[in-house]
Design a protein around this nucleic acid. Structure first.
Lengths: 142, 142
DNA sequence: AAAAAAGTCTATCCTTTTTATAGAGTTTAT
DNA sequence: ATAAACTCTATAAAAAGGATAGACTTTTTT
Protein backbone atom coordinates (compact mmCIF):
# COMPACT_ATOMS: atom_id res chain seq x y z
CA UNK A 1 0.00 0.00 0.00
CA UNK A 2 1.26 3.48 -0.79
CA UNK A 3 1.80 5.80 2.17
CA UNK A 4 -0.55 8.72 2.77
CA UNK A 5 2.32 10.95 1.79
CA UNK A 6 2.51 9.50 -1.68
CA UNK A 7 -1.26 9.41 -2.05
CA UNK A 8 -1.48 13.07 -1.11
CA UNK A 9 1.38 13.91 -3.46
CA UNK A 10 -0.51 12.39 -6.38
CA UNK A 11 -3.67 14.31 -5.61
CA UNK A 12 -1.75 17.54 -5.18
CA UNK A 13 0.09 17.04 -8.47
CA UNK A 14 -3.18 16.34 -10.22
CA UNK A 15 -4.61 19.58 -8.89
CA UNK A 16 -1.53 21.53 -9.91
CA UNK A 17 -1.58 20.06 -13.41
CA UNK A 18 -5.28 20.65 -13.93
CA UNK A 19 -4.90 24.25 -12.87
CA UNK A 20 -1.55 24.96 -14.48
CA UNK A 21 -3.13 27.74 -16.54
CA UNK A 22 -3.93 29.72 -13.40
CA UNK A 23 -0.36 30.44 -12.34
CA UNK A 24 0.99 29.56 -8.88
CA UNK A 25 -1.50 27.67 -6.71
CA UNK A 26 -1.76 28.18 -2.95
CA UNK A 27 -1.02 25.24 -0.68
CA UNK A 28 -4.18 26.13 1.17
CA UNK A 29 -6.24 25.84 -2.01
CA UNK A 30 -4.93 22.34 -2.71
CA UNK A 31 -5.35 21.31 0.92
CA UNK A 32 -8.96 22.49 0.93
CA UNK A 33 -9.80 21.08 -2.46
CA UNK A 34 -8.29 17.67 -1.77
CA UNK A 35 -9.13 17.43 1.91
CA UNK A 36 -5.55 17.25 3.15
CA UNK A 37 -3.98 18.74 6.28
CA UNK A 38 -2.34 21.96 5.15
CA UNK A 39 0.81 21.62 7.22
CA UNK A 40 1.35 18.03 6.22
CA UNK A 41 0.89 19.01 2.60
CA UNK A 42 3.52 21.72 3.03
CA UNK A 43 6.15 19.09 3.80
CA UNK A 44 5.14 17.02 0.82
CA UNK A 45 5.21 19.91 -1.66
CA UNK A 46 8.58 20.94 -0.29
CA UNK A 47 9.96 17.48 -0.99
CA UNK A 48 8.59 17.63 -4.51
CA UNK A 49 10.21 21.02 -4.92
CA UNK A 50 13.57 19.81 -3.64
CA UNK A 51 13.35 16.99 -6.14
CA UNK A 52 12.95 19.45 -8.97
CA UNK A 53 9.38 18.56 -9.82
CA UNK A 54 7.71 21.67 -8.46
CA UNK A 55 8.69 25.31 -8.31
CA UNK A 56 7.39 27.88 -5.87
CA UNK A 57 6.94 31.58 -5.72
CA UNK A 58 6.96 33.46 -2.46
CA UNK A 59 4.98 36.49 -1.47
CA UNK A 60 1.59 37.69 -2.62
CA UNK A 61 0.38 35.88 -5.72
CA UNK A 62 2.79 33.09 -4.90
CA UNK A 63 2.25 29.38 -4.62
CA UNK A 64 3.41 26.15 -6.20
CA UNK A 65 3.53 25.18 -9.85
CA UNK A 66 4.81 22.33 -12.00
CA UNK A 67 8.31 22.68 -13.39
CA UNK A 68 7.84 19.92 -15.93
CA UNK A 69 5.11 18.86 -18.33
CA UNK A 70 2.87 16.21 -16.76
CA UNK A 71 3.79 13.73 -19.46
CA UNK A 72 7.42 13.98 -18.30
CA UNK A 73 6.58 12.82 -14.79
CA UNK A 74 6.23 9.03 -14.53
CA UNK A 75 4.16 7.83 -11.59
CA UNK A 76 7.04 5.59 -10.50
CA UNK A 77 9.17 8.69 -9.93
CA UNK A 78 6.76 10.06 -7.34
CA UNK A 79 6.43 6.78 -5.49
CA UNK A 80 10.19 6.23 -5.30
CA UNK A 81 10.70 9.78 -4.12
CA UNK A 82 8.25 9.65 -1.24
CA UNK A 83 7.90 5.97 -0.43
CA UNK A 84 11.11 4.38 -1.58
CA UNK A 85 11.09 0.93 -3.15
CA UNK A 86 8.24 -0.12 -5.40
CA UNK A 87 9.15 -3.82 -5.29
CA UNK A 88 7.57 -6.07 -2.68
CA UNK A 89 10.92 -7.33 -1.38
CA UNK A 90 14.20 -5.51 -0.77
CA UNK A 91 16.06 -8.28 -2.62
CA UNK A 92 14.24 -7.56 -5.89
CA UNK A 93 14.27 -3.77 -5.72
CA UNK A 94 16.07 -2.06 -8.57
CA UNK A 95 16.60 1.23 -6.77
CA UNK A 96 16.65 0.19 -3.13
CA UNK A 97 18.20 -3.26 -3.26
CA UNK A 98 19.19 -5.05 -0.07
CA UNK A 99 20.51 -8.54 0.23
CA UNK A 100 18.03 -11.15 1.50
CA UNK A 101 18.91 -12.21 5.00
CA UNK A 102 16.63 -15.22 5.08
CA UNK A 103 17.77 -17.28 2.15
CA UNK A 104 21.07 -18.80 1.19
CA UNK A 105 21.19 -17.90 -2.47
CA UNK A 106 18.99 -15.32 -4.16
CA UNK A 107 19.90 -16.73 -7.53
CA UNK A 108 17.96 -19.91 -6.84
CA UNK A 109 15.23 -18.45 -4.62
CA UNK A 110 11.77 -19.03 -6.02
CA UNK A 111 10.34 -16.17 -4.02
CA UNK A 112 12.89 -13.80 -5.49
CA UNK A 113 11.91 -15.05 -8.92
CA UNK A 114 8.18 -14.50 -8.52
CA UNK A 115 8.59 -11.13 -6.86
CA UNK A 116 10.83 -10.00 -9.71
CA UNK A 117 7.98 -10.78 -12.07
CA UNK A 118 5.57 -8.77 -9.93
CA UNK A 119 8.02 -5.90 -9.91
CA UNK A 120 8.38 -5.99 -13.69
CA UNK A 121 4.63 -6.08 -14.24
CA UNK A 122 4.15 -3.18 -11.85
CA UNK A 123 6.93 -1.09 -13.29
CA UNK A 124 5.76 -1.67 -16.82
CA UNK A 125 2.73 0.37 -15.85
CA UNK A 126 4.14 2.84 -13.36
CA UNK A 127 7.20 3.77 -15.44
CA UNK A 128 5.10 4.39 -18.52
CA UNK A 129 2.06 6.07 -17.08
CA UNK A 130 2.68 9.70 -16.24
CA UNK A 131 0.93 12.48 -14.41
CA UNK A 132 -0.70 13.36 -17.71
CA UNK A 133 -2.36 9.97 -17.83
CA UNK A 134 -4.17 10.44 -14.56
CA UNK A 135 -5.63 13.88 -15.24
CA UNK A 136 -9.35 14.34 -15.64
CA UNK A 137 -9.30 17.80 -17.04
CA UNK A 138 -7.13 18.59 -20.03
CA UNK A 139 -5.33 21.88 -19.86
CA UNK A 140 -4.31 23.14 -23.28
CA UNK A 141 -1.28 24.99 -22.00
CA UNK A 142 0.53 21.75 -21.14
CA UNK B 1 6.98 -3.40 0.36
CA UNK B 2 5.86 -6.50 2.21
CA UNK B 3 6.22 -6.44 5.99
CA UNK B 4 8.86 -8.54 7.71
CA UNK B 5 6.04 -10.64 9.03
CA UNK B 6 4.93 -11.64 5.56
CA UNK B 7 8.48 -12.12 4.36
CA UNK B 8 9.20 -14.42 7.29
CA UNK B 9 5.97 -16.29 6.70
CA UNK B 10 7.00 -17.07 3.14
CA UNK B 11 10.40 -18.34 4.20
CA UNK B 12 8.89 -20.44 6.97
CA UNK B 13 6.32 -21.94 4.61
CA UNK B 14 9.04 -22.77 2.13
CA UNK B 15 10.99 -24.56 4.82
CA UNK B 16 7.92 -26.45 5.98
CA UNK B 17 7.06 -27.50 2.43
CA UNK B 18 10.58 -28.60 1.57
CA UNK B 19 10.73 -30.71 4.71
CA UNK B 20 7.17 -31.97 4.70
CA UNK B 21 8.44 -35.55 4.56
CA UNK B 22 10.10 -35.18 7.96
CA UNK B 23 6.95 -34.82 10.05
CA UNK B 24 6.33 -31.84 12.37
CA UNK B 25 9.10 -29.22 12.22
CA UNK B 26 10.27 -27.30 15.28
CA UNK B 27 9.81 -23.54 15.36
CA UNK B 28 13.38 -23.32 16.55
CA UNK B 29 14.64 -25.23 13.54
CA UNK B 30 12.91 -22.86 11.11
CA UNK B 31 14.07 -19.84 13.08
CA UNK B 32 17.65 -21.02 13.02
CA UNK B 33 17.61 -22.13 9.40
CA UNK B 34 16.02 -18.92 8.12
CA UNK B 35 17.65 -16.51 10.52
CA UNK B 36 14.44 -15.30 12.15
CA UNK B 37 13.79 -14.40 15.80
CA UNK B 38 12.19 -17.46 17.33
CA UNK B 39 9.61 -15.60 19.40
CA UNK B 40 8.51 -13.45 16.50
CA UNK B 41 8.22 -16.51 14.31
CA UNK B 42 6.04 -18.15 16.95
CA UNK B 43 3.40 -15.47 16.47
CA UNK B 44 3.53 -15.76 12.72
CA UNK B 45 3.15 -19.52 12.67
CA UNK B 46 0.27 -19.24 15.08
CA UNK B 47 -1.50 -16.84 12.74
CA UNK B 48 -0.97 -19.24 9.88
CA UNK B 49 -2.37 -22.00 12.03
CA UNK B 50 -5.43 -20.00 13.01
CA UNK B 51 -6.01 -19.35 9.33
CA UNK B 52 -6.10 -23.06 8.63
CA UNK B 53 -2.88 -23.20 6.64
CA UNK B 54 -0.73 -24.92 9.23
CA UNK B 55 -1.35 -27.57 11.83
CA UNK B 56 0.67 -28.15 14.95
CA UNK B 57 1.45 -30.91 17.32
CA UNK B 58 2.34 -30.22 20.94
CA UNK B 59 4.72 -32.07 23.18
CA UNK B 60 7.82 -34.01 22.39
CA UNK B 61 8.17 -34.79 18.72
CA UNK B 62 5.78 -31.94 17.99
CA UNK B 63 6.10 -28.97 15.69
CA UNK B 64 4.35 -27.35 12.74
CA UNK B 65 3.31 -28.84 9.43
CA UNK B 66 1.36 -27.86 6.34
CA UNK B 67 -2.32 -28.71 6.30
CA UNK B 68 -2.67 -28.20 2.58
CA UNK B 69 -0.66 -29.08 -0.47
CA UNK B 70 1.67 -26.22 -1.49
CA UNK B 71 -0.05 -25.92 -4.84
CA UNK B 72 -3.27 -25.09 -3.00
CA UNK B 73 -1.75 -22.06 -1.28
CA UNK B 74 -1.66 -18.97 -3.52
CA UNK B 75 0.92 -16.37 -2.52
CA UNK B 76 -1.81 -13.73 -2.46
CA UNK B 77 -3.49 -15.60 0.38
CA UNK B 78 -0.45 -15.26 2.63
CA UNK B 79 0.01 -11.58 1.89
CA UNK B 80 -3.63 -10.75 2.54
CA UNK B 81 -3.58 -12.71 5.74
CA UNK B 82 -0.56 -11.01 7.27
CA UNK B 83 -0.33 -7.67 5.49
CA UNK B 84 -3.83 -6.91 4.36
CA UNK B 85 -4.45 -5.20 1.04
CA UNK B 86 -2.27 -6.01 -1.95
CA UNK B 87 -3.43 -3.01 -3.98
CA UNK B 88 -1.50 0.25 -3.80
CA UNK B 89 -4.54 2.32 -2.85
CA UNK B 90 -7.45 1.55 -0.52
CA UNK B 91 -9.89 2.70 -3.19
CA UNK B 92 -8.81 -0.05 -5.60
CA UNK B 93 -8.51 -2.88 -3.12
CA UNK B 94 -10.77 -5.85 -3.77
CA UNK B 95 -10.59 -7.25 -0.25
CA UNK B 96 -9.90 -4.16 1.85
CA UNK B 97 -11.72 -1.44 -0.06
CA UNK B 98 -12.10 2.02 1.45
CA UNK B 99 -13.60 5.04 -0.22
CA UNK B 100 -11.13 7.66 -1.47
CA UNK B 101 -11.27 10.73 0.71
CA UNK B 102 -9.28 12.94 -1.60
CA UNK B 103 -11.21 12.81 -4.82
CA UNK B 104 -14.76 13.65 -5.73
CA UNK B 105 -15.62 10.70 -7.92
CA UNK B 106 -13.66 7.47 -8.06
CA UNK B 107 -15.41 6.52 -11.25
CA UNK B 108 -13.63 9.27 -13.16
CA UNK B 109 -10.37 9.30 -11.20
CA UNK B 110 -7.37 8.61 -13.40
CA UNK B 111 -5.30 7.53 -10.45
CA UNK B 112 -7.91 4.96 -9.49
CA UNK B 113 -7.85 3.73 -13.06
CA UNK B 114 -4.08 3.23 -13.28
CA UNK B 115 -3.83 1.68 -9.84
CA UNK B 116 -6.57 -0.79 -10.75
CA UNK B 117 -4.40 -1.91 -13.65
CA UNK B 118 -1.41 -2.32 -11.34
CA UNK B 119 -3.56 -4.34 -8.97
CA UNK B 120 -4.76 -6.59 -11.79
CA UNK B 121 -1.26 -7.17 -13.10
CA UNK B 122 -0.01 -7.97 -9.60
CA UNK B 123 -2.88 -10.27 -8.74
CA UNK B 124 -2.59 -12.12 -12.02
CA UNK B 125 0.75 -13.34 -10.70
CA UNK B 126 0.13 -13.60 -6.98
CA UNK B 127 -3.22 -15.37 -7.28
CA UNK B 128 -1.84 -17.96 -9.68
CA UNK B 129 1.57 -18.60 -8.23
CA UNK B 130 1.44 -20.85 -5.21
CA UNK B 131 3.78 -22.01 -2.50
CA UNK B 132 4.69 -24.90 -4.77
CA UNK B 133 6.01 -22.46 -7.36
CA UNK B 134 8.54 -20.94 -5.01
CA UNK B 135 10.08 -24.16 -3.73
CA UNK B 136 13.63 -25.09 -4.57
CA UNK B 137 13.54 -28.65 -3.42
CA UNK B 138 10.84 -30.97 -4.67
CA UNK B 139 9.39 -33.25 -2.09
CA UNK B 140 7.75 -36.30 -3.60
CA UNK B 141 5.24 -36.67 -0.79
CA UNK B 142 3.42 -33.47 -1.81
C1' DA C 1 9.75 52.34 4.02
C1' DA C 2 6.19 49.68 6.00
C1' DA C 3 2.80 46.26 5.96
C1' DA C 4 0.76 42.25 4.39
C1' DA C 5 0.79 38.02 1.91
C1' DA C 6 2.78 33.77 1.15
C1' DG C 7 6.11 30.26 1.03
C1' DT C 8 10.45 28.15 3.86
C1' DC C 9 12.43 25.66 7.27
C1' DT C 10 13.35 23.43 11.59
C1' DA C 11 11.85 21.31 15.52
C1' DT C 12 8.74 18.82 18.03
C1' DC C 13 4.99 15.84 19.19
C1' DC C 14 1.58 12.26 19.15
C1' DT C 15 -0.24 7.98 17.50
C1' DT C 16 -0.08 3.74 15.23
C1' DT C 17 2.22 -0.05 13.37
C1' DT C 18 5.86 -3.06 13.24
C1' DT C 19 9.04 -5.85 15.23
C1' DA C 20 10.52 -8.26 19.01
C1' DT C 21 10.72 -10.30 23.76
C1' DA C 22 9.19 -12.44 28.24
C1' DG C 23 7.13 -15.67 30.81
C1' DA C 24 3.52 -18.42 32.61
C1' DG C 25 0.43 -22.05 30.85
C1' DT C 26 -0.91 -26.30 28.47
C1' DT C 27 -0.29 -30.57 26.00
C1' DT C 28 1.94 -34.87 24.89
C1' DA C 29 5.48 -38.61 24.36
C1' DT C 30 8.18 -41.43 26.87
C1' DA D 1 6.81 -37.61 36.42
C1' DT D 2 9.40 -35.12 33.37
C1' DA D 3 11.00 -32.78 29.59
C1' DA D 4 9.89 -31.15 25.16
C1' DA D 5 7.05 -28.16 22.51
C1' DC D 6 3.47 -25.33 21.24
C1' DT D 7 -0.06 -21.56 23.26
C1' DC D 8 -1.35 -17.38 24.90
C1' DT D 9 -1.24 -12.87 26.91
C1' DA D 10 1.19 -9.02 28.00
C1' DT D 11 4.54 -5.80 27.25
C1' DA D 12 8.05 -3.01 25.24
C1' DA D 13 11.24 -0.99 22.02
C1' DA D 14 11.75 1.02 17.57
C1' DA D 15 10.21 2.92 13.42
C1' DA D 16 6.92 5.10 10.56
C1' DG D 17 3.18 7.96 9.74
C1' DG D 18 0.75 11.92 10.39
C1' DA D 19 0.29 16.41 12.20
C1' DT D 20 1.39 20.99 14.42
C1' DA D 21 3.89 25.25 15.88
C1' DG D 22 6.32 29.09 15.14
C1' DA D 23 9.99 31.91 13.69
C1' DC D 24 12.01 33.30 9.24
C1' DT D 25 12.44 34.99 4.43
C1' DT D 26 10.84 36.82 0.18
C1' DT D 27 7.88 39.54 -2.61
C1' DT D 28 4.17 42.64 -3.72
C1' DT D 29 1.52 46.49 -2.73
C1' DT D 30 0.68 50.84 -0.82
Amino acid sequence: MLSKKTQYAFHALIHLAENADKGPILISEIAHEKNISIKFLENILLELKNAGILGSKKGKGGGYYLLKAPKEIPLARIIRLLDGAIALLPCVSLNYYERCENCRDEAVCGLNDVMSKVRDATLKILENKTLKDILTRNVSIL
